[in-house]
């Protein structure tokens, strides 16, 4: 009883109030093995727009994304966790997730990427939606495989229209469900940031 009371009070402690606002894998060991079955290990690193050039970089990212950064997760110093995947001594890819505001809550959009920036895997680590099952279905996720930032370049994330392959991705849910566009924005943001942090470093 007493122990639980103490636990309770520790829970009240203000220390816990300051959690990091990054986007980490829930279980990196398991997740990495699932996304890169041939991997032998991974390294975790942290990046932020602030550390990668500051305001100029932020402007460039917003331009590439076609939207302004806003809200709690899209600050200039928000930390991003990048998992670099190894097979032996050589890098075989990356895993990177971003937070994206959704219709009913925060989305966590994770991408597995190869060394050239091509998507090899897409999944939601977190999603609140009435149509969660449709969004999480393989049929939807598979449409992202093989795409890279170039395919999203002309995609207008506010309408979902554009000339690249990304514009061909089909909305798994109802036409009014905003989470489709939210997801596209999350994926594009993810790619743009990875371009800044890794591929175009």
């Amino acid at each position: 009883m007493i122990k639980r009371l103490v636990l309770l009070f520790l829970a009240l402690s203000p220390f816990l109030a300051y959690a990091a606002t990054g986007c980490d894998l829930n279980d990196p060991d398991r997740d990495v093995k699932r996304l890169f079955p041939t991997s032998t290990g991974y390294k975790t690193s942290y990046a932020s727009i602030q550390k990668s050039g500051g305001k100029a970089t932020l402007a460039a990212v917003e331009k590439a994304l076609g939207d302004k950064f806003g809200g709690l997760y899209e600050t200039i110093d928000a930390p991003y966790t990048i998992y670099t995947i190894y097979k032996g001594n050589s890098v075989i890819g990356y895993v990177h997730g971003v937070n994206q505001k959704g219709a009913y809550g925060g989305l966590q959009v994770f991408l597995a990427l190869d060394t050239k920036g091509k998507i090899t895997g897409f999944y939601y680590q977190k999603l609140s939606s009435k149509n969660a099952a449709k969004f999480k279905a393989a049929a939807f996720a598979n449409q992202f495989t093989g795409l890279s930032l170039a395919d999203f370049a002309t995609l207008d994330i506010k309408t979902g229209k554009g000339t690249g392959k990304a514009a061909l991705i089909k909305n798994p849910s109802t036409a009014t469900d905003k989470d489709f566009l939210n997801t596209l924005r999350g994926v594009k943001k993810n790619l743009v940031l990875m371009n800044v942090f890794i591929y175009n470093k």
């Binding site: 109030a17 959690a19 606002t21 809200g71 709690l72 997760y73 937070n99 994206q100 505001k101 959704g102 219709a103 009913y104 809550g105 925060g106 609140s128 939606s129 009435k130």
Partner: peptide, 24 residues
Amino acid sequence: GFESAELEQREVGDQILIPGKNVE
């Protein structure tokens, strides 16, 4: 609460969904 709003990226006027109940 501040933390939960931050986690879900909610602002006043936004919706949340009670999972399973499908209540907005």
